[in-house]
Computed example of a mutant assay.
Amino acid sequence: MQFSTTLAALFAVVSATLSAATPAVEARQQIYMCGKQPYKKTDYTCYPNNGNVLCPIIGGVAYLPCGYGSNVACYDPGNYSCSNSKLYLLKVCGGIPFDTNSYVCVQGHLCPKTHPLRCGEACYNISQYWCDKGILKQQGQK
Score class of each variant (00 low, 15 high):
2 Q>Y: 06
2 Q>M: 00
4 S>Q: 14
6 T>Q: 02
10 L>W: 00
11 F>Y: 02
11 F>R: 00
13 V>F: 02
13 V>N: 00
15 S>Y: 03
15 S>W: 02
17 T>E: 09
18 L>Q: 07
18 L>S: 12
20 A>Y: 11
21 A>Q: 05
21 A>K: 01
23 P>L: 08
27 A>S: 12
29 Q>K: 10
34 C>F: 08
35 G>P: 07
36 K>V: 11
37 Q>E: 06
41 K>D: 07
41 K>R: 14
42 T>Q: 08
43 D>S: 12
44 Y>F: 15
44 Y>D: 10
44 Y>I: 00
46 C>S: 04
50 N>K: 14
50 N>S: 15
53 V>F: 07
57 I>F: 04
60 G>S: 03
64 L>A: 11
66 C>H: 06
67 G>Q: 02
68 Y>A: 11
69 G>W: 06
69 G>P: 10
70 S>P: 05
71 N>V: 10
72 V>K: 10
73 A>G: 06
74 C>F: 13
76 D>M: 05
76 D>I: 03
78 G>K: 14
81 S>A: 13
81 S>M: 07
85 S>F: 01
89 L>H: 01
89 L>W: 13
91 K>C: 02
91 K>L: 15
91 K>W: 09
91 K>D: 10
93 C>H: 06
94 G>S: 13
95 G>S: 08
95 G>D: 01
95 G>P: 13
100 T>R: 01
101 N>I: 03
102 S>F: 02
105 C>S: 05
107 Q>G: 11
109 H>A: 08
111 C>V: 06
112 P>V: 06
113 K>C: 02
114 T>I: 11
116 P>C: 00
120 G>H: 07
121 E>G: 06
122 A>W: 02
122 A>K: 12
122 A>F: 04
123 C>S: 12
125 N>R: 01
126 I>S: 11
133 K>Y: 08
135 I>M: 05
136 L>E: 09
138 Q>V: 08
141 Q>M: 00
142 K>L: 09
